[in-house]
Design a protein around this nucleic acid. Structure first.
Length: 223
DNA sequence: ATGACGATTTACT
DNA sequence: GTAAATCGTCATA
């Protein structure tokens, strides 16, 4: 059972991935380690993956494989995958069972257990070279900091005490910026869609979103 | 059985 | 900015 009474329940996750991604901003992801240590962070960057029609999604074309089977579960489950031979990334599954969509958690603002996170992230390099904004500012950084790996793939975030989300604070739409997703250049037109959502003023983002197009903007658009 | 490829991070020039 | 690290996964044969 989750450790907090304000843990987000099933209903929260049964939405389309774009809506869920936006409302995930500001929520708090909590990891409870086997030894009882508590690590947590506020969600500041999320991407939506729209499933079967989305060329960037692992379930594009309706693919259902041993790796991505968690994406087919009911909303509120975790989809954790291993990539590049060394990194893990964590998604919150959206929609209902059979609709394989999800939200990739790309960055957190660390809240609890920063010292433990530093140790997880440091590896062999000197621990003093890690600033707070280097702990969870990327999809594979945050899984490393929170010790999230494939052993947590497919768990139910609604009822599993090792990993869950709680209410946190809602982020107003005026502080949210949408941008193209990162690292999906192979996905054609799907790479350009604004399916990445960030808390605009957070220093904990993986990549700073381009300035919004408009007067005074001189970068980000060719043509 | 084989090979190409990552929803990334890091270090280095 | 460029490149290396590193191996599970999946489509093809």
């Amino acid at each position: 059972m989750p450790a907090h009474s304000d843990t987000l329940g099933r209903r929260f996750f049964l939405r389309d991935p774009v809506t869920l991604a936006k409302v995930l901003l500001g929520r708090v992801l909590t990891r409870v380690l086997d030894d009882g240590a508590v690590l947590s962070g506020r969600v500041v960057e999320v991407e939506a993956y729209l499933g079967i029609p989305d060329r960037a999604a692992h379930t594009f074309g309706g693919r259902k494989t041993p790796r991505n089977r968690s994406m087919w579960l009911d909303g509120g489950h975790a989809y954790v995958y291993f990539t590049y031979g060394m990194h893990h990334c964590m998604n919150v599954v959206s929609d209902r069972e059979g609709t394989p969509t999800a939200c990739l958690i790309r960055a957190l603002e660390p809240l609890e257990g920063l010292d433990r996170m530093r140790h997880h992230r440091a590896g062999q390099r000197p621990i003093d070279r890690l600033c707070d904004t280097d702990l969870c500012s990327g999809p594979a950084k945050l899984t490393q900091a929170l010790a999230i790996d494939r052993s947590l793939d497919g768990i139910d975030l609604v009822s599993d005490g090792r990993l869950f989300l709680h209410r946190g604070r809602v982020v107003g739409a005026d502080r949210v910026v949408a941008a193209p997703r990162i690292g999906v250049g192979y996905a054609g037109v799907w790479a350009e869609k604004l399916l990445r959502f960030c808390v605009a003023d957070s220093p904990h983002l993986s990549v700073r979103p381009e300035a919004i197009s408009g007067k005074g903007s001189t970068i980000g658009f060719a043509g």
